Simulated assay, not measured.
Amino acid sequence: MEETQRRIRAVHTTSTITVYQAYSPEIGLPAVREGRFPTAWKRDRMTWIKPSFLWMMYRCGWGAKAGQETVLAVEITRDGFEWALRHACLSSYVRGVHPDRATWQRQLKHAPTRIQWDPERDLHLQALPYRSLQLGLAGEAARRYADEWTVSISDVTPLAREIRTLVGNGDLDSAARLLPQELPYLPADELPAHLRP
């Protein structure tokens, strides 16, 4: 049952998919201004991208958490996103999916991307009974993300604040109307069974 409740939900076109991240203004504002991540953005660190806007709001506290005050919508190529999916390993060991823990650890050590399925969130940022994708990018994947896959970077901090205010005022209908319209995303290529949504 849980397996069918895993979905990649995202704003996407025929050629791009939008993911979200949050950074300090020192990173986020130059990224928006230049349309690409600045040199201060660490390309050798693991970075997590989230196709779910509300999961990002949960993670960054609507852009109120220290070091996450600038919320970015990063439009990347579908080709890049699907490369990341094809080269991913699950972020945690799952009995029955991996032959054994040692095999999973070897796969995880060498995989440039990691998949994690986390509970989707509602407007109050409470967990829902189905899960959405987080994708961790390291090494080659992080470099490709920053320097090859990124199509555009937008500052959605004002949107986050507006929705948070509406939720705080109890106007959930207006808040919901402002949410990015995320639809199920179906990768073009067949994914390995253990990574399928």
Results as ranks from 00 to 15, higher is better:
165 T>R: 15
9 R>A: 12
78 R>N: 05
65 K>F: 08
187 P>W: 01
82 E>K: 06
80 G>V: 06
12 H>G: 01
163 I>W: 04
83 W>G: 03
182 E>T: 10
67 G>P: 02
193 A>T: 10
161 R>V: 03
180 P>F: 00
136 G>R: 10
48 W>Y: 14
189 D>G: 04
180 P>L: 03
37 F>P: 00
100 D>F: 02
151 V>G: 08
130 Y>D: 09
140 E>A: 11
196 R>Y: 03
165 T>M: 13
144 R>E: 04
145 Y>G: 08
152 S>I: 06
89 C>P: 09
92 S>M: 14
145 Y>F: 15
156 V>H: 12
38 P>W: 09
119 P>K: 12
169 N>V: 04
103 T>F: 12
122 D>C: 05
58 Y>C: 11
168 G>V: 09
132 S>Y: 05
36 R>S: 06
17 I>W: 00
8 I>W: 00
118 D>A: 08
27 I>C: 03
63 G>S: 14
138 A>Y: 12
115 I>D: 01
56 M>D: 05
163 I>R: 14
99 P>T: 10
171 D>V: 03
12 H>D: 03
35 G>L: 01
133 L>T: 02
142 A>V: 07
25 P>R: 14
182 E>I: 14
30 P>S: 08
75 E>M: 11
116 Q>T: 11
61 G>I: 05
106 R>P: 03
189 D>M: 13
82 E>C: 07
61 G>T: 10
180 P>S: 05
114 R>V: 05
183 L>M: 13
135 L>R: 13
24 S>Q: 14
85 L>P: 01
153 I>F: 03
111 A>R: 13
148 E>W: 04
108 L>I: 07
25 P>L: 06
73 A>M: 04
61 G>N: 10
73 A>Q: 04
169 N>G: 09
5 Q>G: 08
159 L>F: 05
190 E>Q: 11
93 Y>P: 02
121 R>M: 14
93 Y>D: 05
102 A>C: 07
16 T>E: 00
138 A>W: 12
30 P>C: 06
27 I>A: 06
135 L>D: 01
169 N>F: 02
16 T>L: 01
62 W>Y: 11
144 R>P: 01
11 V>M: 15
